[in-house]
Amino acid sequence: MEVKKATIKDVAKKAKVSTATVSYVMNSSRFVKDETRERVLKAMEELNYRPSTVAKSLKGKDSKVIGLIIPIIPHDTSADFFLTLSNGIESVLNEVGYRLVISNSHENILNELDQVSMFSTQFTDYIDGLIIVPTLKVNNESYEVLNTQYPVVYVDRKPNNLKNVAMDMVYSNNYFITYEAIEMILKKNRRKIGFISGPIDVSSTVERFDAYKDVLKKYQIPLDENLIYVGESSYQSGFKMAEELLANQEVDGLVVVNNTISMGVFKYLKEQKIKIPEEISFLSYDDFQWMELTEPPITTIRQPSYEMGQVAAKLMLEKLEAGTRQSKEICVDSKIILRGSL
Rank of each mutant, 00 (worst) to 15 (best):
I127A: 12
I127E: 10
I127V: 14
I127C: 03
I127F: 10
D128Q: 07
D128P: 00
D128H: 03
G129A: 15
G129L: 05
G129R: 13
G129C: 07
L130I: 10
L130G: 10
L130M: 14
L130W: 03
L130K: 12
I131L: 08
I131W: 07
I131M: 09
I131Y: 03
I131R: 06
I131N: 04
I131A: 02
I131H: 07
I132G: 01
I132M: 03
V133Q: 05
V133H: 07
V133Y: 06
V133K: 07
P134L: 07
P134Y: 08
T135H: 07
T135R: 06
T135C: 14
T135G: 11
L136C: 00
L136R: 12
L136Y: 03
K137E: 07
K137I: 08
K137D: 01
K137P: 00
K137H: 07
V138R: 08
V138E: 12
V138W: 04
V138F: 13
V138C: 13
N139V: 08
N139Q: 14
N139H: 11
N139R: 15
N139T: 13
N139W: 04
N140L: 11
N140Q: 13
N140D: 12
E141L: 11
E141V: 11
E141R: 14
E141W: 05
S142P: 00
S142W: 02
Y143W: 15
Y143D: 00
Y143C: 05
Y143R: 14
Y143S: 09
Y143Q: 11
E144L: 12
E144V: 08
E144S: 15
E144F: 07
E144R: 15
V145P: 00
V145Y: 00
L146K: 09
L146F: 06
L146Q: 10
L146Y: 05
L146M: 15
N147G: 03
N147Y: 04
N147P: 00
T148H: 14
T148Q: 14
T148K: 15
T148F: 10
T148W: 11
Q149L: 14
Q149F: 08
Y150G: 04
Y150F: 15
Y150R: 15
Y150H: 15
Y150V: 12
P151K: 10
P151Q: 09
P151Y: 09
V152H: 01
V153D: 03
V153F: 04
V153E: 03
V153M: 05
V153Y: 04
Y154H: 05
V155P: 00
V155W: 01
V155T: 09
D156W: 01
D156S: 12
D156H: 08
D156P: 00
